[in-house]
Design a protein around this nucleic acid. Structure first.
Lengths: 231, 231
DNA sequence: AACAAAAATTGATGTATATCATGTTTTTTA
DNA sequence: TAAAAAACATGATATACATCAATTTTTGTT
């Protein structure tokens, strides 16, 4: 029997949006006149939940995290790599505020497009809105997967997920310099920092990974995948 | 200070989609020729995760639940009341399969529209696709809220959420006949059936609710809301 | 280089909640 | 209407993790 659908708590968007390819020259021009480029330092806020969404954000360089907050608690929804967008949910007429916060994981650069112009083009260009529809659908599915994992898997599996995600999607290598702190990993896998440390130690003892300072290496990829799947 | 954003694990869609209002007569005609109406008994599968998505489902009567599965585990994503759609994520070109399963909570009736026709109209009518974009965005935000609650709140708060949700969104009364079993409630609030029973007992002892058989009554609405908020 | 601040680590303790076991009540079915 | 099955209920037990406290290491700053 074939595997039905393997879920992962990884949410680095993998969908390449082709929406800008379908724009007419006049629309490209219109956007050009209504956009700005901004740089962000690691940790800086890109958008803040609850504030008015005056623009759509497109990550040009770097990496951002998107999270929702309530009182002192927070939850990372997804990680935004280069080429992906933040703030599409604010397109909804009923909600002109950001539904989540975003901040830079590393020094980053973003392109901000005026939301009114963006909306205007969405309304007039059905190819454009179709592409966005696809993007939003693909995003949703990915977050469903993360949702499933964080509520069903236990620490060992959740952390394996994140390690694999970083290796496959972000660094695209089996060996890499891990720029994220233990606290970042904890936030990503929705567990305590202490627990992350204990689990990493266990992974190391079990010969799944190697760590020297910030240098990170996946030794037993297959078993890591297995752990991620079992949970 | 104002409350920023109160999250709820409730996911009965509250967004009324006006997408069918923006169709041209010819498009309405086209859909009419490519749709069927189907009835489902309580518990029956409406769509199955992993199978080819040949249609978009619109709930005409009744109530459905949408969940994702992996091995023996499952997670309810949202509840679909009358007038809402299932299967929009299958619009994505890269994914022609259902990303989740749906089944009827009560005897229900649905309208099935051929996905090719649906897609065709999305591509040609930007008002239509804009409305769908809004719908998908609104759906996402709602699921984010549920995601947040199920990962952050504890049993007491999660169950309060579901009770309030049922009262406000489904039955639209403070007193109602609860058609869902304890097991259903457990699934909805992502906890064990035994725990639901214990928590309901506690709610009753604390004078928050009253229960006689299937008859359910919210006594102390304010405090229930408070519990839901605190977690 | 010296210091402060932050991050990483380790062990001990506490707790929310799942799981198991068993019994009772309600519903369904034959 | 009796029998079977499902739902409901409750107490006992187990456990995965969070939380707390204390120590060491790394990083950043003057």
């Amino acid at each position: 029997m074939e595997k039905n659908n393997v879920q992962s708590s990884c949410t680095v968007a993998d969908y390449k949006c082709k929406c800008f390819d379908v724009l007419k020259p006049s629309e490209i021009e219109l956007i050009k006149n209504n956009e700005v480029y901004v740089t962000y330092k690691r940790g800086e806020t890109i958008c803040k939940q609850g504030t008015f969404a005056s623009h759509i954000v497109i990550m040009e360089e770097g990496l951002a995290k998107v999270s929702i907050e309530d009182c002192n608690k927070s939850l990372i929804l997804k990680i935004i790599p280069e080429g992906n967008m933040i703030g599409l949910t604010a397109l909804s007429q009923t909600n002109n505020t950001f539904q989540y916060s975003a901040s830079a994981y590393v020094d980053s650069k973003a392109r901000l497009i005026d939301i009114k112009i963006f909306k205007k083009i969405v309304k007039q260009n059905s190819d454009f809105s179709f592409e966005l529809l696809n993007l939003l659908a693909s995003n949703s599915v990915q977050i469903y997967g993360r949702f499933f994992c964080l509520t069903n898997k236990q620490s060992y599996g959740k952390l394996a997920d994140i390690i694999l995600c970083l290796s496959n999607r972000v660094y695209k290598k089996r060996e890499f310099e891990l720029l994220l702190s233990r606290k970042d990993l904890a936030e990503l896998s929705d567990m305590s920092t202490e627990n992350v440390i204990r689990m990493l130690k266990k992974f190391k003892e079990d010969g799944l990974i190697e760590m020297k300072g910030k240098q990170f290496k996946i030794i037993d990829y297959k078993n890591l995948v297995k752990i991620s799947e079992i949970g």
